[in-house]
Nucleic acid binder design. Structure first.
Length: 487
RNA sequence: GCCCCCAUCGUCUAGAGGCCUAGGACAUCAGCCUUUCAAGCUGAAGAUCAGGGGUCCGAAUCCCCUUGGGGGCACCA
């Protein structure tokens, strides 16, 4: 049963389409989603596309695709701020009418120079409020110039603003450290500060969960809510996710876009599980949690305050766990697109699903990502293996005894009628005994012959899947190559 | 420069005054298993709880200072 108050839990994820969503953005989306789902609330998607200049084509689609891929389903939206400009303008006008805002005619160039000088004087860069108290005459004059003004908020000159953050508790900011920020830009678009509070109010957002980089602009938002006599939502500023150099995540850190993880073959469930543990935990030992468990246990009380560095090795491990937990059928379904994409062009398509299934049963527990499956399995599909002869000469056997072993093994295998792992093992073990070779020596040699590598799935199972013809063909191939590796 | 946040193994973290001679996970190393790899199992190493002061019978846990790291200070979000 949901209590009355829980039915009004409304969360939103509000990305801006100025780039592709990275791990940090997605972690924020996840926590909002988890919180909403935990409380039986509503999860809303809102696109904050108020920066015309920095808008990236296609970013919205990538954002939606990424959320869908991860299964972070939303109940409302996506709303687009660019389609709600009137609401922001009306609100800005109201602020103007009620003396909480004013028109500012200062040019960007002037502001830039001003900031430069402030920096030079080692002062905090802040708007100098030149247009805050213009006389009626100055106002008329400036209006006559035809310059399109921006609308700025009249930040109280004195006093301080306090609010309670669900994670950081009580926060207080002095007004004299704030300046008169822009609400409406000269192109008629709202700034983040305005659009954000207008929408959160209109969409009845109850909790704002966002990255800690927003903490210092929160007093502005609180001030705005007060000026408009609106009740502010509850804020929770989540710890940041940092790159390995401990700096804010950016392109420099490589592979931070969530879609890259999709392409590399990480599973949504593993991704979700891993991201949930960046800044949150259930207890002192639980690492693996299903979506349902995540929803069930999620709470802001267990969100930490320390910024986290993204640990790719752990993600890989976790993805491997999720990969191994898949049924063979599921694994095949997931891996098929990757095989299609990355297997050599020479491999005939469509791939035979039955054969792929037998191959992948040997690959599944060896893959950490779906992306490495084609590489791990390539020798099952290639007609001719690109042998690296140094692998042969590196073996424990010299070319002469290797040739002898291969010849005998070939002969024995020619006669095999039931080509299965058990039979093959039985026969080849006896070959080893007969030649007075250790199993390691013989099998190692055969492994290179069959797979072209020294590390591969179990030899006999591999041979069984590959089939008699293909195996014997590879043996012949090796026999031809061996003389070249003399000494 | 100003404002704000943060501080436990390399990394993710548990810890809300005595259960901590600080627990778990990834990574690392060793052993077992074994035809290689992987997986699995067992074990090891790894944190004087950033440093210094307090408070207290008692502090990783509370307070202060220092240091370090991060974030913000746009007609970007």
């Amino acid at each position: 049963m949901q209590s009355q108050s829980e039915t009004s839990v409304r969360l939103r994820f509000a990305p801006s389409p100025t780039g592709y969503p990275h791990l940090g953005n997605i972690r924020t989306a996840l926590f909002n989603w988890l919180f909403a789902r935990h409380h039986g609330g509503t999860f809303i998607l809102r696109i904050e596309d108020t920066d015309v200049a920095r808008k990236v084509e296609g970013a919205v689609d990538i954002i939606l695709d990424s959320l869908r891929w991860l299964g972070l389903d939303w109940d409302e939206g996506p709303y687009f701020q660019s389609q709600r400009l009137l609401v922001y303008r009306e609100t800005a006008q109201r602020l103007l009418d009620e003396d909480h805002a004013y028109l500012c005619y200062c040019s960007p160039e002037r502001l830039e120079v001003m900031r430069q000088e402030q920096m030079k004087r080692k002062e905090p860069p802040k708007y100098d409020r030149r247009c805050r108290d213009l006389t009626q005459q100055q106002r008329t004059q400036l209006k006559a110039t035809g310059i399109t003004p921006v609308i700025r908020f009249k930040t109280p000159l004195e006093g301080e603003t306090t609010f309670y953050d669900l994670i950081h508790d009580r926060m207080t900011f002095k007004h004299d450290t704030l300046d008169d920020f822009v609400l409406l830009k000269s192109d008629g678009y709202p700034t983040y500060h305005l659009a954000n509070i207008v929408d959160d109010h209109l969409m009845a957002i109850s909790h704002v969960l966002r990255a800690e980089e927003w903490l210092s602009s929160t007093p502005r938002h609180v001030l705005l809510y007060r000026a408009l006599h609106w009740q502010a939502p509850q804020f929770a500023h989540l710890p940041m996710i940092l790159g390995s150099d401990r700096a804010k995540l950016s392109k420099r850190h490589g592979a931070t876009n969530i879609s890259e993880y999709q392409q590399q073959g990480y599973l949504p469930d593993a991704m979700i599980n891993f991201l949930a543990l960046l800044g949150w935990s259930v207890d002192d030992r639980t690492e693996l949690l299903s979506r349902e468990e995540l929803i069930k246990h999620f709470s802001l009380e267990r969100v930490g305050k320390t910024p986290a560095i993204f640990n790719k090795e752990k993600l890989e491990w976790m993805n491997g766990v999720y990969l191994r937990r898949l049924s063979l059928g599921q694994f095949v379904d997931h891996a098929m697109p990757f095989l299609d994409r990355d297997l050599a062009k020479s491999v005939r398509r469509p791939l035979d699903e039955n054969y792929v299934g037998r191959v992948l049963s040997l690959i599944q527990e060896r893959a950490k990502t779906l992306g490495e499956v084609p590489q791990l399995a390539s020798f099952f599909f290639l007609d001719e293996l690109p042998y690296d002869t140094s692998l042969l000469s590196k073996g424990k056997l010299d070319a002469k005894s290797a040739t002898k072993a291969m010849t005998i093994a070939s002969q024995k295998l020619e006669e095999v009628l039931t080509w299965d792992a058990t039979t093959l093992e039985c026969i080849l073990r006896s070959v080893a005994t007969e030649l007075n070779l250790s199993t390691g020596e013989l099998f190692g040699l055969l492994r290179v012959a069959v797979t072209g590598r020294t590390a591969a799935p179990p030899l006999f199972q591999t041979m069984a899947v590959l089939g008699k013809d293909q195996c014997l063909k590879r043996f012949k191939m090796i026999l031809q190559l061996l003389p070249a590796c003399l000494n």
